[in-house]
Nucleic acid binder design. Structure first.
Length: 581
RNA sequence: GCGCCCGUAGCUCAGCAGGAUAGAGCACCAGAUUCCUAAUCUGGGGGCCAUGGGUUCGAAUCCCGUCGGGCGCACCA
């Protein structure tokens, strides 16, 4: 896909060219680093349309005064046909004012690029593996998983928009003690299905009803042959079957949110393939794994603590606080031991790794980061690795916390919530706060149809535009770019706002923060609604002005492009852009 | 005791990989709203960006300390 340069990208190029010209003229020394040079719209629109700090950043290394350099640079930039005014302000900002034609051209660019406006080649086609959800396959998804799922999914599409190939991956923890517990829980349901009275599910097992159907299925298949058989006869089989059933449920839950992973990686398969053992052997050869005894944890008393010799990974060498065991005293892999090998496996097919984790796993970030550094450096290709921690969501209903009974296994499931408020509301709400901040999710508020509700407000902008188009069509007027010169200051201000979208997408992708897209849309919708409201008192400012078809067509064209941006932004977030509400 | 995250208006939160006079919504105050494109509109007050240092031409943003809140700290995942 070839992407024509958007206006902001083009001006970054223009400033660079102007600096080249100054170098050529001897005004500026050749080869100064320009990494800190920015070209961006000033916060205060009265300062102009674009602003660059180039003179301030380069003055010092050039051994000159910022204002002198600014004068020279401004003179160079003033030669551009698009620039109608330059001004030097403050400590050396150069403010540029652009011709209306420039903005009209950008409006046309939005129309031309359409669903692709905002895509960029920033990522250069490199592959990013985003691992998210990775909930244990021991039950349906509950709301605790929801935020990470949405953030991860939106981040994945954001990265695609900014020119990366993305692998959406789910790590299935089907090898640890939790899935053995699952198998035992299913065994009880199996006995129950055969007519046995099992009473209350014992403490420590999974009590949820969702295991009943699997018990029945296994009963139908195996009859009573495993009822009193020793655990070793049935555990693996029951476990495999239960995990498979759980993953079907989980995929269904994810589908409700519009989430579909490319790869599901099984921890059990990873172990069966000997990956953790390979990693251990290699790390031992590097003296990065050794047999040792950890000190007892400080500041916390454990009654059953005993010193034990375990194979330890030297994560302290890479910034961790403590070396970490990769196998347990029974010889099985620890979660970390397998996870280490898993990350190495992911690194083989990606140029960068991103993990989305719940904040309760914050304590394990350092060790896994250490492991990735050790393994990928060792393999000769160091892979950047980031963990995004997603904070917990508190569920409220009209301001009151939603009660959850752990005892009965009645947590609030994702499916219930999506069924109640809808996929779009869940997704947008989860993205309406930065991930590392805690968040409230109030059932009453998120479905409110008012301007106080961002989900509604943004969708309403698109719906309003769609309804205007329908209305205009009835009157026989269509959008047209024939007379865009008729658009005035207020309309062009909307274009200027919308034109930020490509930059915003790049910045959000670079910082791995999809919530910025949500905020941008909220603001853009706000600007659109504000313009719309002008029509309340001033009928000549309405989109449809019956006695002036030319102007109406131009405004409809504008509205249509604003709608396009809203739709593109919502597409990144995975939220439907409805046309009627 | 150690580590990580957070601390911005009365409340809930933004703040664009350091930039110009720190923003939005709610709440509050004052107006408008028989018209119109339903799901209101316009304007206003309100801040020592927790705090003390440091780096820089320039800090809410980066670094260090302190205070306050949350989370996590053996072979659980």
């Amino acid at each position: 896909m070839s992407t024509p340069k958007t206006l902001h990208a083009a001006f970054a190029g223009h400033v660079a060219a102007a600096l080249d010209a100054l170098e050529g003229a001897g005004t500026l020394p050749v080869g100064l680093p320009r990494g800190n040079v920015t070209v961006e719209p000033p916060r205060d629109a009265s300062h102009g349309d674009l602003s660059t700090n180039a003179a301030m950043v380069l003055a010092k290394p050039a051994g000159t005064n910022p204002r002198v350099l600014a004068e020279a640079l401004a003179a160079e930039l003033a030669k551009l046909p698009a620039v109608t005014g330059t001004q030097i302000a403050g400590p050396g900002f150069i403010n540029l004012r652009l011709s209306p034609d420039t903005w009209i051209a950008e409006l046309n660019a939005i129309a031309a690029l359409n669903d692709d406006y905002g895509r960029s080649t920033m990522g250069g086609g490199s592959t990013v593996n985003v691992e998210y959800v990775s909930a244990n396959p021991t039950g349906p998804m509950h709301m605790g998983h929801c935020r990470g799922a949405v953030v991860g999914d939106a981040l994945a599409s954001l990265l695609e928009w900014s020119g990366h190939k993305v692998i959406r991956e789910y790590y299935v923890n089907d090898a640890g003690g939790q899935v053995d517990v699952l198998a035992r829980s299913v065994h009880i349901r199996y006995r129950e299905a055969l007519g046995e009275y099992v009473g209350e599910i014992p403490e420590g097992l999974y009590p949820g009803d969702y295991l009943v159907p699997i018990g029945k299925e296994l009963a139908g298949e195996f009859g009573d042959s495993y009822v009193s058989a020793p655990e070793s006869d049935w555990l693996i089989q029951f476990r495999t079957r239960a995990v498979a059933a759980m993953m079907v449920m989980i995929r269904d839950d994810l589908a409700l949110l519009g989430i579909k992973h490319d790869v599901f990686s099984s921890e059990a398969e990873l172990q069966a393939a000997g990956k953790p053992a390979e990693a251990e052997a290699w790390l031992r050869a590097q003296d990065l794994v050794y047999d040792g005894v950890l000190e007892a944890p400080k500041g916390k008393t454990l009654d059953d603590w005993e010193p034990v010799e375990l194979p330890l990974f030297r994560s302290t060498k890479f910034g961790d606080d403590q070396d970490r065991p990769i196998r347990k005293s029974d010889g099985n892999w620890t979660y970390f031991g397998a996870d280490l090998a898993y990350h190495f496996q992911k690194a083989e097919t990606a140029d960068a790794l991103v993990d989305i984790w719940g904040a309760d796993h914050a304590g394990t970030v350092k060790r896994i980061r250490a492991a990735v550094a050790a393994l990928t450096e060792g393999a000769g290709k160091e892979i950047p690795f980031e963990v995004k921690l997603v904070q917990m969501v508190q569920l409220l209903r009209g301001g009151e916390p939603v009660k959850m009974s752990k005892r009965s296994g009645n947590f609030v499931t994702l499916a219930d919530v999506v069924r109640e408020v809808g996929k779009d509301v869940v997704r947008f709400t989860m993205l309406s706060r930065k991930p590392e901040a805690q968040m409230d999710f109030d059932f009453a508020k998120v479905v409110e149809a008012s301007k106080d509700n961002p989900v509604f407000y943004v969708q309403y902008a698109n719906a309003r535009i769609a309804s205007t188009m329908r209305k205009a069509a009835e009157a026989g007027i269509a959008a047209s770019d024939a007379a865009l010169a008729r658009l005035g200051e207020e309309e062009l201000a909307l274009v200027k706002h919308a034109a930020q979208f490509p930059r915003l997408v790049e910045a959000a992708a670079a910082s791995r923060e999809p919530h910025r897209v949500a905020f941008f849309l909220y603001e853009l919708a706000g600007a659109f609604h504000a313009y719309w409201n002008l029509g309340n008192d001033q009928p000549e400012k309405r989109f449809i002005v019956a006695q002036d078809q030319e102007l109406t067509s131009a405004r409809l064209f504008l509205a249509s492009q604003i709608g396009q941006i809203v739709r593109n932004g919502l597409a990144i977030l995975g939220v439907e852009a409805v046309e009627e509400m």
